[in-house]
Amino acid sequence: MTMWWETPSLHLPCWARAFKSTTLMTIQATAPALFSRRHLLTCEGLTAPEITSLLDLADHAAELNRQVNKKRDVLRGRTLINLFFEASTRTQASFELAGKRLGADVMNMNVSTSSVQKGETLIDTAMTLNAMRPDMIVVRHHAAGAVELLSQKVDCSVINAGDGAHEHPTQALLDALTIRRAKGRIAGLTVAICGDILHSRVARSNIHLFNTLGARVRLVAPSTLLPTGIERLGAEVFTDMWKGLEGADIVMMLRLQRERMQGNYVPSTREYYHFFGLDQEKLAQARPDALIMHPGPMNRGVEIASAIADHSRSVIRDQVEMGVAVRMAVLEALARKLPNH
C-alpha cells in the first residue's frame, strides 16, 4: 500500500509539514479540505470523498503512531472534553490518546460523579460545559439523537461517540480503515455484519459507510434482533448464518449484551452460540481470506469462539490501533473548521 511519504501532498496533515519543504507547505495552506464540517454526528450523509479524505488522514496518523515521538501540535491550545454518559473503555481511551497526541488539553467527564446524577438535564450540562469554552466535545449518550441535540446548543465542534442505537461514526471509520489497509480497497467487498443489529449503532453506521464506499452489506441475525425496514438502508438480510457468510470478504461480529441473552430476544446463550456464534465451521463459509472483526468488548463463547478471536485472520487488535488513528484524523479535520480568533 501507499506510504504516507509517497502520497500527494494535498492530503498531507499539518503534523507532517515538518518533513516537507517550505514550498509544499504553501500549497497545503491553500488546498481545499475535503472534509469540512463543524460536527461529526453521523455516517449517514457523509460523501465518499469526505470519507476517503478522513481515511487518508488517518493512514498518516497510523504510521506516525508507530514512531517513537508520537506527539504533534496541531491542536495546541485547544481543549477537548470527553463527555461520556455511558461507560466506555476503548472509545474514551482512544479519544483521550488521540487528543493528547495532537497536543490538545483533554478532560474526561466522569458522569457517575457529575451533576447529571443530581438531575441536571442534558441541555443544562451542555450549556455549563459550553461556558468553559472547549473547542471540541466528544459525546456518548444512551439516547438516540442526544448528541445531535447537544450539538445544537454549544458553540464548539461535537463528535458523536455513540448515541443510543443510532450511530457511532468513528467506529465505522476505523473499521473501514482497518479493511482498507488489509485489503487495499473497500469497493466491491462483501461485508457480513452479524449479531444484535436491533440495538447496534455500530451496525447502522457501518451500513451507511460501506454503502457509500461501494461495498455490499449483509446482515445476519435472528429476526428478533433485526429492526423494521433495515433492508431499506441498503443491506441484504439473512437469518441463516451459514448462508449469510457464504463468500463474504469481511465477517464483522457484534456484541450481544448480557441482558438480551436470556429469553427476551434469544432463548439462551447456548442456543445463540449454536446458530449465530462465529466458529470454525461457519467461518469456513466465508472466503478463505476473509477478515474477522469485532468492535469489542467481546463475549468469548457467546458471539465468537475464543480460537476465532485470536485467529490469524482476526484484525480485532488492528481495529483498536486504527481507532486512535481515525480519531486523530477526525479531530484534525474538525479543527480546520474551528475559529482561530
Binding site: A144, D163, A165, R201, R204, T228, G229
Partner: peptide, 15 residues
C-alpha cells in the same frame, strides 16, 4: 412508529 424511519433514527418503535 416502527418503520424504516425509526430504524434510521435508532429509536425503539411500536408497530
Amino acid at each position: 412508529n416502527s418503520s424504516e424511519m425509526s430504524t434510521r433514527l435508532g429509536l425503539p418503535g411500536v408497530h
